[in-house]
Amino acid sequence: MNITELAEGVIAGDRRMLARAITLVESRRKDHRRDAAELLGLLAASGRQALRIGLSGTPGVGKSTFIESFGMMLTGQGLRVAVLAVDPSSARSGGSILGDKTRMDRLSRAPGAFIRPSPSQSQLGGVARRTRDAVTVCEAAGFDVVLIETVGVGQSETMVAQMSDIFLLLLAPAGGDELQGVKRGIMEIADMILINKADGELKSAAQRTCADYAGALRLLRKRPQDPEGYPRALTVSAMEERGLNEVWDQIGRLVEWRRANGHWDRTRRQQATSWFHDEVRVGVLARLDEDPQIQAAMTDLAEQVGRGTLAVSAAAERILDRLRRGG
């Protein structure tokens, strides 16, 4: 398909064109990468922006249930919502289940919603290799909110914060020593900690957990992009759809404050710069895979390292020297 026609279809809101565009930007084929770069350039010219909300959480915390309930609330208010859900890929086969559309049955049928599951392809950071490009495509398609769901939670899952405006961390109550259950690093980048499943027998436990995290957040160093009282901890029940309006209200207040104080634009510029540096690094690594002479040298050096006759750092320096000399 003509790339210009594809871009025009995406900007016009054609869902089939949107799906084809995301498939193109996620492709690893060399010819597709060239087409994807052209497409992204055309889409960037639209100047459209969406509110990017990253969401992470421990397995079983109810991320899909929360996203469905939250997304239904937003579409009920007339907003268009895109969900980019990343499923973990098998380290053995490379396959992914991609079952988010099944888990979000109501939202997948909502007229104002679009759900796109993608494999992580063993990419660290909790997001797929091309999730950032998929966000750009969804923004150009005119979505008001883009929800980015990561594969899990941990020190390596913080990459989603580098492509989102608001980062939500979902936790479950009564999980033992809650404050030890999440690393400090991810707490420091979270804009809100949401204690899910605050219903039934777990309601009181959720309130206690929320109070624990609220106290812990007050001990963290204040960030310049936050007004007084942020980040904060809240209780929600995705199953009973309680607390969702408060979460949306708090997100709106935080976004408004950041826009008014220049943090929104500054963060967007920093993110774009970070993406650029990442693309350069990936391009350098791609050269290692594409150059047969470098691959042969790496195989030989790897054997020496494995036998213990060559230090790892020395072997790596030899490859870097070849790159500096242009092969």
Rank of each mutant, 00 (worst) to 15 (best):
V305W: 06
M1G: 08
W264H: 11
P117A: 12
H32E: 02
R130P: 08
H277F: 11
Q250R: 10
W275S: 05
R48C: 01
Q49K: 13
F114T: 03
T150V: 05
D133P: 07
L244N: 05
T150I: 03
A205M: 09
A216W: 02
S164D: 01
T4G: 11
V305P: 12
S274A: 06
A91E: 09
R324P: 00
I22C: 03
S90Y: 07
A296R: 14
R232Q: 13
T75E: 12
A113I: 09
A314Q: 06
R34W: 06
L194P: 13
R287W: 13
G112C: 07
E241F: 04
Q180T: 06
I97M: 05
E139W: 03
P173E: 04
L171H: 10
E26A: 04
I319P: 07
L40C: 07
S69R: 12
R132F: 04
Q123L: 06
Q180D: 04
A174L: 12
A272D: 13
V61Y: 01
R109H: 11
A296K: 09
L6H: 05
L202N: 15
E241T: 09
A7F: 00
V312P: 01
L171G: 01
W264N: 01
R218W: 07
Y213F: 15
P292A: 08
E279L: 09
G99I: 04
Q180Y: 06
E149P: 10
A91G: 10
I186P: 00
G71D: 06
S164V: 12
I189P: 07
S46A: 13
L219G: 11
A12C: 05
Q293D: 13
W275D: 08
V153T: 06
K183R: 15
A37Q: 15
E38N: 13
V305H: 05
G142L: 10
T102W: 06
Q293T: 13
P59E: 01
A311P: 00
A297L: 10
S46D: 04
D100M: 13
F143N: 04
R48Q: 09
Y213I: 08
M239L: 07
A214S: 15
W257S: 00
W257M: 02
L42N: 07
L320T: 12
A198R: 08
S204Y: 11
R130N: 15
G176W: 04
G71C: 10
S89G: 04
A21F: 08
T299N: 11
M72A: 07
F114A: 06
I189Q: 05
L74A: 14
D289F: 12
G95S: 14
R242F: 08
G41P: 02
Q155G: 03
S56F: 02
D31V: 11
A50R: 10
Q162R: 04
V86G: 08
R221K: 14
S164T: 11
V127E: 03
G252K: 14
L6Q: 11
L18N: 07
A21L: 15
G125F: 00
G60E: 05
Q270S: 10
D249C: 09
Q207T: 14
A91H: 13
L234M: 12
L74S: 00
T75P: 05
I189N: 04
A206F: 03
D300K: 14
V86N: 11
Q121F: 01
A315G: 06
G306D: 15
F143T: 00
K197T: 00
V10A: 03
G57M: 01
Y230P: 11
A302F: 08
C210N: 15
L24R: 03
A297K: 08
L301F: 10
R103M: 13
G142N: 12
P59K: 14
A44D: 14
R221W: 07
